[in-house]
Every structure is written in C-alpha cells, then in structure tokens.
C-alpha cells in the first residue's frame, strides 16, 4: 500500500474511486474481527430484542433456531452449485438465493441468542466469535432443528429446482403469516424475507415449467427429483410442540395452518407443468422424531463437517 500515508490524511475519502478496490482499505485498525464471520459486529445492533409478554424465551429461541437452521442448511447446499451450475446465470441465481437465506439465518440465529443466551455454545474465554456464528459453527447435528428437506444432497439441477420450489413455497407462506408476529424482530425478518422468497419461488416455478415442458430427458429428471424429495414434504407441516407453543403465544406460525395455501400453489405449478403429484409415502422419522427434534439424515453430518471444520479448528481465530 504505497499510498498509505496519503490515505490517512485525506478527509473526503469515500468518494475516491479506489475506496473498495483495496481489500484492506476499509478495515478499521481498532476493530478486531472473527476471521470466519462477516465483520459487522451485530446484525441486530440497536434493535430492541425484548421478548414479548407471555412468551417463553426458550421456546422463542428454539423456534428461531428452527427457521434459522432451515435457511442456514439450505443456503450451504445451494452454495455447492457455485461454479457447478449448468450455466452462469443459474450459478449466480443459486448463489443469490443462498445469500438471501444466509442473511435470514444470521438474523434468526442472532435473535435466538438474544432471546435465550443459554442455547449459545460456550467457547474459550477471549473468543471473538459472535453468537450467531457460535450457533452456526459450534452446534452438532443433533442440536440443529432444520427440516430434513433442507439437508438432502442436491441431486441434479432439476432436483435442486424442485427442492427450491417446495422449500420457498412453504417458507413464503410461513413468512407471510409470521410478518404479523408479536415479536417485532421476527415480524421484521419475515416481512423482509417475503420479498426475497417471492423471487426464489418464482424462479423455481419458472424453471420447473421449463424442465417439465422441455425435453424427454429434462422432464424425466424433474419427475425423478420431485419423487425423491416428496417423502420429506409431510414433515414441513407436522407441528412440533415448540411451534404449537409459539403459535399459541402469537409469535410463531403453526405450519399445519399454511398447508392448504402451499398445496394450492404447488397444484398450480404441477397442473401448468402437466406433472402428477408423486404417489410416494412420507419418510418417517426415528420414533416419531425428525429434523425439528434434531433427528437428521446422514447427509447433514457430512454437510456440517465441511461447513464447520475451519471455524472449529480455530475458535479463537481473528485478525
């Protein structure tokens, strides 16, 4: 940085064209950073995170983990398409959808930590890792609350399109209701998420139609992908005790309540595409427990091993 001295004496620097060309230029010298996170110290800085009256903080936190983990895990899966999608536009589309979901996850995990700090994994003293990153990188699979649909391997492009359609249609319906939550943070995250999920659902719906009406091979792959995912669909609408509790307290949504809405949207996509509803039974959990209870498929442990290994190897990592 040959112009370092000049930089420090400038007074109107943000209009300089090179301000963001140098990756180090924007770093404040008195701002220690967790090396594996984003650097914005608190995604809820200055936001009122008081838990509303009559709401159990532990339930609210667990519910935020459920919705946050859904987004975190699917975001990680979609990011696997980066540099691997059939063409550049779809590569970028999956990366954008993954980024939106990661942002939702970050806010939701931060909200969970603020509601019930006891659920945040403890790290050695002096660790700069923020709460939402502790929750993302330092929980084992049995503590993750995502639905299994989010964690399944990607399969091919058609199967990923089918998954984004199922997931975004469901989550959009949940968030439209959640935008009226008594918890101001959840309501705000949901209201913002609705705008993003609308683009995700429409993207997947259009591709679903294109693949269904494309070649014999594209249609075959789409139908096979949908059938592979369909057994995990019933879990999306199975109400967990925590979901029932937060819905009763006016801060969460009972997923069973959006089942009809989601069905109507999916039926329209299927009818327009000329694809039958798959006739395959739901995949049972273990003794009635599934993703919301921390009972996952083997695929999640492999995903977490990749996602968490660097952070876990360096719990004090910072620069």
């Amino acid at each position: 940085m040959p112009d370092e001295r000049a930089r420090t004496t400038r007074t109107t620097r943000t209009r300089e064209p090179d301000e963001h060309d140098n990756a180090y230029a924007g770093l404040l010298t008195d701002d220690p950073r967790w090396a594996f996170g984003t650097g914005f110290e608190d995604p809820l800085a200055g936001v009122d995170t008081t838990v509303p009256d009559g709401v159990d903080p532990a339930d609210l936190a667990t519910y935020c983990l459920m919705l946050g983990d859904d987004a975190l895990v699917l975001s990680q899966r979609l990011a696997e398409w980066t540099s691997n999608a059939p063409d550049l536009e779809e590569d970028i589309a999956f990366a954008n959808i993954a980024l939106d979901l990661l942002g939702q996850a970050r806010l939701l995990l931060a909200r969970a930590a603020a509601a019930d700090p006891t659920q945040v994994p403890a790290l050695p003293a002096g660790s700069p890792v923020p709460d939402e990153d502790r929750l993302a990188f330092f929980r084992d699979g049995t503590a993750l609350r995502n639905v299994r649909l989010a964690e399944l391997p990607n399969g091919d492009f058609a199967q990923t399109v089918a998954r984004v359609l199922l997931f975004a249609t469901w989550r959009l319906a949940l968030f439209e209701e959640l935008a009226r939550s008594r918890d101001a943070v959840l309501a705000a995250v949901a209201a913002k998420g609705v705008k993003e999920l609308t683009y995700h659902r429409d993207f997947a719906g259009r591709w679903f139609l294109v693949l269904a009406r494309g070649t014999e091979e594209s249609r075959r792959r789409l139908v096979a992908g949908l059938e592979a995912l369909w057994p995990y669909r019933a879990e999306l609408f199975a109400t967990h005790d925590v979901e029932r509790a937060v819905a009763g307290a006016g801060v969460g949504v009972d997923p069973a309540d959006v089942a009809d809405t989601v069905d109507a949207v999916l039926d329209r996509v299927l009818e327009t595409s000329g694809v039958e509803r798959p006739d395959v039974p739901p995949r049972a959990g273990v003794l009635g427990r599934a993703g919301r209870d921390g009972r996952h498929t083997e695929a999640l442990s492999l995903l977490l091993a990749e996602m968490q290994s660097v952070a876990r190897a360096h719990p004090l990592g910072q620069w």
Binding site: A45, G46, V47, A188, A191
Partner: peptide
C-alpha cells in the same frame, strides 16, 4: 454509532 433498522423493510 451505527444501528440497524430492520423495520420497515427496505
């Protein structure tokens, strides 16, 4: 200080 305003959504 910089604070985050989540609501209303952008």
């Amino acid at each position: 200080r910089v604070r985050v305003a989540l609501e209303p959504a952008w």
